[in-house]
Design a protein around this nucleic acid. Structure first.
Lengths: 345, 345
DNA sequence: ACCAGCACTCTAAGCAAACAAGTGCCAAAA
DNA sequence: TTTTGGCACTTGTTTGCTTAGAGTGCTGGT
């Protein structure tokens, strides 16, 4: 997918400074500025020729006949892939970031802390998915009988995350039966991952039932209902309002589209899911995400891992015209810090 | 607080149609339009005189020397207090609304359903506070021991609402002790309101300890920690993005201010809390709320009650220029429907 | 008390001129 | 062959000016 475009060093350098320049001040950049700014001794006329070539390649684009050039999506893409010189964070900065994770215990809280960090440092929007549930460790289950054969299921994962749902049962259970069922399930399944539990439950249901007594069968039956689709994937978003300050996003119904996408979640989740597979920092520029609402936005993401196992994705959402050279290393570092903050020591 | 302004019927009528007209099409309304539209046979010239008086009273205002008049905040206030003719909902409409509450069981879900109804029907933002916790009925408590003397407390209120928090204990409890403590607390306190439980716990702590065995003392001690400040007040907001379509709100940093206020919650809660005290529909117009972020907004609220006891507030947030005559009865009805939907049959 | 008429003010829209920024292309210089 | 200066051309932006329209305030007459 990475194209080369067969460009000589000079063109590369000019493209690079053009993009940098445009990111810096948001104005189309013309041949004159470039000639003064690129550090190469070239007249504007020459630069015009180069720009013309770049335009033919689809890397830059003129809003109108006589205005400077602006990077296209491909231009940005090429820039971040091949031209960008990232500014790695100082180790002191990393420590400062790390400190911000201190004093937060609950996993959900850590995740939302990460999200606010992302948004506050970049002054854009931060997003962090919750750790994948297949990786979530089942710890404890508890039942509480409600009226009308309904059962409140409370289960604890990962030390201290509490989830609950109401299920409808066929028969009415009394308190003792429920305690027994819970005890059975806790003793058998506790310690495994949620998805492992789900599999095991299905397995046990298929198995020769003569090995189990009625209580156990009831327990497994209930468990089957309790664990099907235990929780939907979700993410924590922060600093959305920062996006309202960017003029390039506030035009037309753009903001509304974007925020609608945020509250429907589903589209954003889909984009983020794609990042789960890849290692390291990934970038979606403008339309690349495939969602119209993100037309004018870029998304810089990185997956994060607990014990070398990828469990989630985090990222920054901002205008296409963002300071990638700072955002990229920052997202990278934050992902690593989040991973270790979540790591049960 | 209600001022009279000593206006004659004609002025009142003109003011009323002016406000209606302005709400309808958002343009400053001039003497000519008013003369044709008010249903009174008066020449524009006469109307101009009346308008001049209204302007002196601070009820209307000219954006510039020669443009029509626009209602001021006081104008709106006077309008909704004294001039407005509300359009009560058809009973068929009420049924339609009521249907939308059907099939939702969980209290939190009912509340957020109410919020979406508010926003969808009005095409503005809907907001509903969660029922006051003093009214919430304590049902069941459960403990789970974590590492480092930490204890996960899970408690169920109102049939099926689950809350949880982590507390730090002085000594380490084993599973049996925890079960015993939970049993004790469940048997003693279950069925009372959360605030009643809190009081009772404090009371029991003060009381002669010789009447209790060590297990009970432990239980009450834990309970004390578990129930202090059990949950923060909160609200459910929907359809915020609808507000981005109103041109009067999108100017400058208005939108950002507003959405920042939404995500900080605290300010909004403060406004809504004021409505808890009053019966029926209340209206905050523009700056009246006392929060700058709501400058260009109006808030139409109503408290809602379960079994004749006020437990929360719901409302609609939109531009000052909103169709009060429809919104007010709608908010009123929705509050009543929400109350009965929440009512445990 | 009402209203017609008039002078005045302000906005919105259109238009032309002047200007600035930048391009494309060509022919000359290196 | 590459680079460059020069020139014509395009486009957008600003400015000033004009006209039309809407609306007001005021005055004097009914």
């Amino acid at each position: 997918m990475k194209k080369n475009f067969d460009l000589n060093d000079r063109s590369l350098h000019l493209l690079k400074t053009l993009v940098e320049r445009y990111i810096h001040d948001g104005q189309p950049v013309g041949s004159r500025v470039l000639s003064k700014n690129a550090g190469i001794k070239l007249s504007p006329a020459t630069i015009r020729n180069v720009m013309s070539d770049l335009e033919d390649l689809g890397l830059v684009h003129s809003p109108h006949t006589s205005s400077g050039r602006v990077p296209t999506v491909s231009g940005y893409r090429f820039f971040v892939d091949s031209l960008l010189t990232v500014k790695p964070l100082q180790s002191s900065e990393i420590c400062q970031l790390d400190d911000k994770f201190k004093g937060v215990e609950n996993a959900t809280d850590i995740v939302s802390r990460a999200s606010t960090i992302l948004s506050e440092v970049t002054q854009m929007a931060g997003v962090v998915t919750l750790p994948r549930r297949e990786l979530v460790c089942f710890r404890h289950i508890e039942f509480l009988s409600l009226s009308h054969n309904r059962l409140l299921v409370i289960f604890v994962t990962n030390e201290d995350e509490v989830h609950n749902k109401v299920i409808h049962t066929l028969k009415k259970f009394n308190a003792a039966e429920l305690v027994q069922a819970a005890n059975y399930l806790n003793s058998v399944y506790s310690g495994r991952s949620l998805s492992a539990v789900r599999e095991a439950v299905l397995n046990d249901l298929q198995q020769d039932r003569y090995q189990l007594n009625q209580g156990m069968i009831d327990a497994v039956n209930i468990a089957q209902m309790a664990f099907e689709e235990p929780q939907k994937e979700d993410y924590v978003l922060s600093g959305e309002t920062n996006l309202m300050s960017f003029s390039e996003l506030s035009g037309k119904g753009h903001l509304k589209q974007l925020f609608d996408a945020f509250s429907q979640k589903q589209g954003v989740i889909h984009i983020l899911d794609q990042c789960l597979l890849a290692e390291g920092v990934q970038i979606f520029i403008g339309e690349e995400s495939g969602y119209q609402a993100f037309d004018q936005c870029s998304l810089v993401t990185s997956s994060y891992a607990i014990n070398d196992e990828t469990v989630g994705v985090l990222g920054v959402i901002g205008p296409t015209r963002m300071a990638y050279e700072k955002v990229i290393p920052f997202v990278d570092v934050t992902a690593k810090l989040l991973g270790s903050a979540l790591n049960p020591k």
